[in-house]
Structures are given as C-alpha cells and as structure tokens.
C-alpha cells in the first residue's frame, strides 16, 4: 500500500503470536480493519505456522471435570434458535460493541474474531468494575455531604463554637478546627497531620476539670487531611481543652502517646 508496508507484515507476525502491544497493536488493527489483503494473508500464514508449532508439541488430556462440565452445559442448553433470543437481554451499549465486532469480522474475516470477543469480554468486566468504583465514590461523596450538612446545621445553633487546635510535638505543621456544640457534639477537621504510624491511630480527648475523656479515634489520608465526628460529652460540662494524641489503632481509655494537636485553654 505504501513503501513502508513491509513494517505491517512484521507486525502481522507479532500479532499472530498475540505479542503485539501499545501503539503497534492499535495501528496494526486499524490497518487490518481497512481490509489489507496482504496482511490478512501474512496473518493467516503465521497462524497456520503457530498451529503447526502446537501440533509438534506435547499432547495432554485435560482434567476430566472440564469435559464433564462442558457436556453438562451442553445438555442444559436449549436449541440454538432459543439461545439467539436470549441475546436481546444485552445492554444497549453491548449491542453497539457487538455491532463493531460484527463489522470487524465482516471486514477482516473471522480470524480476528476471537481476539475481539476476548476484548469485548474484558470490556464488560472492566465496565462492571468501573460501575462498582463509581458506586463507592458516590457513597463516599454522599457520606461527606451528610457530614457537611450536619456541620452547617450545627453552625446555625448560636451555642456552637469553632475551636482551633494547633500542632504540637512531632507535628508542628498540623492544625485543626473543631465545630463544637456542648450538647450536640461536633465535627473535627484536621490538616497537615501525616498518617499515623502502622498499627497506630489518632485519638481525640476532651478535657474537663483536668480529666481527659476519650472522644474517638481517626486516621488521616496521605495528604494529611482527616475528619472525625465527635459525640457530646455526657453530663454536659463544658469542655476546657481538646487534644489529639497518637495511640494504638483500637484507641486507649486514657492518653498514653505524644500530643500532636491541642486547643488553647
């Protein structure tokens, strides 16, 4: 087709072995899909060679379960015509893909069908994974939204105050704001606090009359951000100091580790 056509025939050999990747793969498939007879012939010859390679290799009877499973499956199959009707259950986009596959088979011949079918299968799988990932992201966003809605609600209450916590000890860069309501609890927002060491977590303490009370453990992400919902202290006594220490991941009942964040008294 042009003076570089020889390069395509090289790609055809690599393609037949399933070893083509990257741009070469896309380029060759596009070339083949335009209906190049010479490459189709090279591909076909390479495939016959590979089949001969297989034929001179060892024979080995597969595990008998495979045969049994296939024959059972066959037994359970309705005659072919009914099976064709079942395909209408495919999602519309799958139909689009199937049309592309059919077009590919029609243009270039049946021999690349297997590869397209395999890819179709993979795309279906990847689409399912992507849906799952989106669902998880959506759940995460919804939870975050609820948290913010809760904070806004809290801020409407005149009794709510915003407490600033400053970094201390090993985390001088760290900082936090706590939206706090003595009777309703609050929400802690932490920044610049590196993730706790393996097996450890950060624990928040509310200190009243010099006595610390555990107010839950939390983690921060790789960017040093974290947030933590805090329940109101029972008894309703005003909290004097908020502090965060490094503790075992399950939390401690009284502070044992170094203080990384504390509010001014």
């Amino acid at each position: 087709m042009n003076r570089d056509h020889d390069a395509y025939e090289t790609l055809a050999s690599v393609y037949a072995l399933g070893a083509l990747d990257g741009d070469d793969l896309a380029e060759f498939e596009a070339h083949l899909a335009r209906g190049c007879e010479r490459c189709a012939a090279t591909l076909s010859a390479s495939e016959e060679t590979i089949a001969r390679l297989a034929a001179e290799g060892p024979r080995r009877t597969p595990p008998p379960e495979v045969r049994r499973a296939l024959l059972q499956r066959l037994e359970a199959t309705a005659p072919r015509r009914e099976r064709a009707a079942g395909r209408s259950l495919w999602l519309p986009w799958m139909l689009g893909m199937a049309a592309a596959v059919i077009a590919a088979i029609w243009v270039t011949g049946g021999f690349i069908a297997a590869r397209y079918e395999a890819r179709l299968d993979r795309m279906t799988r990847e689409a399912a994974e992507a849906r799952e990932r989106l669902r998880q992201e959506q759940d995460g966003l919804r939870a975050e939204l609820q948290r913010y809605a809760g904070v806004i609600e809290l801020l409407r209450d005149p009794a709510t105050r915003v407490v600033t916590l400053r970094g201390a000890g090993a985390a001088p860069e760290a900082g936090a704001r706590l939206v706090w309501n003595e009777t309703r609890g609050g929400q802690l927002f932490v920044t610049n606090l590196p993730p706790a060491p393996e097996g450890k977590a950060y624990e928040l303490w509310t200190i009243t009359g010099g006595r610390p009370r555990a107010a839950g453990v939390f983690q921060t992400d790789a960017s040093g951000k974290g947030t933590h919902a805090v329940e109101a202290a029972p008894g309703g006594k005003p909290v004097e100091v908020f502090a965060v220490t490094v503790e075992p991941a399950a939390g401690a009942s009284s502070p044992t580790g170094p203080i990384v964040l504390a509010s001014a008294k």
Partner: peptide
Amino acid sequence: TYDPARGSPEAWIVMRARSRAID
C-alpha cells in the same frame, strides 16, 4: 464463524485458546 477457506480448524482453535490464555 469458522470459515474453512480462511484457515485450518487447528489454527482456528489454537488461536482462540492462546488468545484466551494470554488474556
């Protein structure tokens, strides 16, 4: 989808099997 004019049954099944295994 098998077309005898395009190749042997051996090549057809071997290509399918290799392609699946590689995937």
